[in-house]
Computed example of a mutant assay.
Amino acid sequence: MPPLHVTEHTVKTGAHTTFFLASGPEDGPLIIFVHGWPELSMSWRHQLPVLDGLGFRAVAPDMRGYGRSSVYDEHHQYAQELIVGDMIGLLDALGRERAVWVGHDWGSPVVWNVASHHPERCAAVANLCVPYYTLERGLDAVLDLVDRNVYPEDQYPAGQWEYQLFYQENFTRATAVMEANVYNTVKLLFRKGNPAGQGKPSATSMVRKNGGWFSGADEAPDLPRDADVVTEEELHAYASALTRNGFFGPNSYYMNHEANAAYAARAVNDGYLNMPVLFIAATYDYTCETVTSRLAEPMINTYCRDLTVAQIDSGHWMAQEKPFEVNSVLVRWLVDSEHDHWPRPKVESDK
């Protein structure tokens, strides 16, 4: 269930339907939160009320293939160019020229692509875990950045990204295993970060070697819920949506690397981002590992000209595991970097 004061909406842009949650004054400066795999708009449940309280209009859509947004049955319908089109369509439907965009996981490539193809629609952009100039450019873009001290090439050809090759080689199997017990799948996935994993190969690097997810089992094991990330009610909401729609759409985000690379190559400004950019690294995210590896180098050294970097001691599901820390970093950055997009206090002459 959405938090108090968060309302539910749908808009149609052409043949596509986008469901979204919204909070805050309708005329407040717009901030759009973009979720990743395998989540929902409710993944931003800890952020929407906070931005509402500061006077923003905070919006979080279900991405295509998820929740109550349109679901498609072909891989190519989940390419980044089409998903970015959904987001620009949402912005148009809201009657706005621009927004602050915030993404996580596969939502990060979407936000990076909005910024690099439609900079005029961005007041600023922020992303959690996935840095710029990486996965939005296709899988090949990250292979040269793999830490070969942790992932020797003869054992892990694609490093921590081995699981993405498994989707390409065994898509039907990967999807069937996740759908065999959706509740257990999401219960296993949504877990807090573990400091003990630092410097060791990530679980995602083992997927091909083990013959699939969950060590090659036919379904996810029944592990206890991690109460530091999700409540039982939230877990059931995720499981219900993924049971209804299946994993074909979410998993198809991994099936368009070549098309995504071609789209990224058409970015404006040669891919350089001039607007304010915030990147929040997760210390214990061992797939999107940016603390000791070179994964964030293109973003930090070259392509973001107004970049703020922060780090939070969390795992991959940062916005849900460490919401207070995420909200603090995000709001401080907005105060420091986005004076023009900050809510304007009402004065007598405004009435």
Score class of each variant (00 low, 15 high):
4 L>P: 15
6 V>T: 07
8 E>H: 11
12 K>G: 10
18 T>C: 05
18 T>P: 09
20 F>N: 05
23 S>G: 09
24 G>M: 08
27 D>Y: 05
28 G>F: 06
31 I>G: 00
36 G>V: 11
39 E>D: 12
39 E>R: 03
40 L>G: 05
42 M>L: 15
44 W>S: 00
44 W>V: 06
46 H>N: 12
47 Q>P: 00
48 L>F: 10
51 L>Y: 02
54 L>G: 11
54 L>R: 14
56 F>V: 03
56 F>I: 02
59 V>N: 09
67 G>P: 06
67 G>S: 12
69 S>L: 05
69 S>P: 07
71 V>G: 03
73 D>K: 14
73 D>P: 04
73 D>E: 14
78 Y>V: 02
86 D>K: 01
86 D>E: 06
86 D>A: 04
89 G>L: 06
90 L>C: 04
97 E>I: 04
98 R>A: 15
98 R>W: 07
99 A>C: 04
100 V>F: 04
101 W>G: 04
101 W>S: 07
104 H>M: 05
111 V>N: 04
112 W>M: 03
114 V>G: 00
118 H>S: 08
123 A>Y: 09
125 V>T: 14
126 A>K: 10
129 C>V: 12
131 P>M: 05
133 Y>C: 06
133 Y>N: 15
134 T>R: 03
138 G>M: 01
141 A>I: 01
142 V>L: 03
143 L>R: 06
146 V>W: 08
147 D>N: 14
147 D>V: 04
151 Y>W: 05
151 Y>M: 00
152 P>Y: 03
156 Y>W: 11
161 W>D: 00
161 W>T: 02
164 Q>S: 07
164 Q>V: 15
168 Q>A: 12
171 F>R: 08
175 T>V: 15
177 V>L: 00
178 M>G: 02
185 T>C: 00
190 F>M: 04
191 R>T: 10
197 G>V: 02
198 Q>T: 12
201 P>G: 01
203 A>S: 15
207 V>K: 04
212 G>E: 01
213 W>L: 06
214 F>R: 00
214 F>Q: 00
217 A>P: 03
222 D>H: 07
222 D>Q: 10
225 R>L: 13
239 A>C: 09
242 L>W: 01
247 F>D: 01
247 F>V: 01
247 F>M: 08
251 N>D: 13
252 S>F: 13
253 Y>R: 13
258 E>K: 14
259 A>R: 11
261 A>Q: 12
263 Y>W: 09
264 A>C: 06
264 A>V: 12
267 A>S: 14
275 M>F: 08
277 V>G: 03
279 F>K: 01
280 I>D: 02
280 I>V: 14
284 Y>L: 06
287 T>K: 08
287 T>V: 14
290 T>R: 04
290 T>I: 09
291 V>M: 13
291 V>S: 13
291 V>H: 07
295 L>T: 08
299 M>F: 12
300 I>G: 05
302 T>R: 12
305 R>I: 02
305 R>N: 15
307 L>V: 04
308 T>N: 06
309 V>P: 02
315 G>D: 07
317 W>T: 04
322 K>Q: 11
326 V>I: 12
328 S>G: 12
328 S>I: 02
328 S>Y: 09
331 V>A: 09
332 R>P: 01
334 L>P: 00
334 L>S: 12
336 D>G: 06
336 D>A: 11
340 D>Q: 14
341 H>V: 05
344 R>H: 13
350 D>A: 01
350 D>G: 03
351 K>C: 14
